[in-house]
């Protein structure tokens, strides 16, 4: 077994364990922490694939910024343990066998017929310089459009998360003991 395979299996095991733990936990904060573990392990996988810039962005943006937003919201809303409700019977009856069958089929096709040669890590230039040149030449228009998207998202978040004026008025009208 090469070092690459060992590292892939180690990071992959963390990913799989984190994903299963996300499903198994009932408290959202535990799910959020296991999701952070999954994202950090995925950054390791990206490094193995030679995508250094993507790995760094994964840690900073995903595991950092986005998950901090999640954890903040969980703590802000004081989310407790979720109540489990029974799903529909049909879903259990057909969903679990269907899922197993589908995953076996997909796994078989992928493992059997993808017939690929592995690439060595670092064979692909994934450093920030190359990425930046590609991003600001070939993908300049999509890049600019994402800036508009971000602006809309910021404004939307501010509009949605601030209290509506009617409830503000109601809040001041109510007596505060």
């Amino acid at each position: 077994m090469s070092v690459h395979l060992v590292l892939f299996l180690a990071f992959g095991a963390v990913c799989v364990a984190g994903a299963i733990n996300l499903l198994a936990q009932t408290h959202p904060i535990n799910s959020a922490l296991s999701l952070i573990a999954v994202m950090a392990a995925l950054a390791g996988e990206y490094l193995l694939l030679g995508a250094e810039f993507v790995a760094a962005v994964q840690v900073i943006v995903y595991a950092g910024a986005i998950m901090v937003l999640f954890v903040f919201t969980i703590m802000l809303l004081n989310a407790g343990v979720e109540e489990r409700t029974k799903g529909s019977r049909v879903a259990v009856l057909f969903g679990i066998p269907g899922m197993l069958l589908g995953s076996i089929l997909v796994g078989w096709v992928v493992l059997r017929h993808s017939g690929t040669e592995a690439v060595a890590a670092g064979a692909l230039p994934g450093d920030p310089k190359t990425i930046g040149q590609l991003l600001f030449h070939e993908f300049l228009l999509p890049f600019e459009i994402t800036s508009v998207l971000i602006l809309i998202a910021i404004m939307g978040a501010v509009v949605l998360a601030t209290k509506p004026p009617s409830s503000l008025a109601g809040g001041t009208a109510r007596k505060v003991d």
Binding site: V57, Q58, V61, Y62, A65, I66, L69, F70, T73, L76, L77, T146, L149, I150, I152, A153, I154, G156, A157, V158, V159, L160, A161
Partner: peptide, 16 residues
């Protein structure tokens, strides 16, 4: 990732 960040910001605001 950019779309996910935008989605997280708006989605969490909707959740609030």
């Amino acid at each position: 990732m950019v779309v996910a960040a935008a989605e997280a910001a708006v989605g969490l605001a909707i959740i609030i």
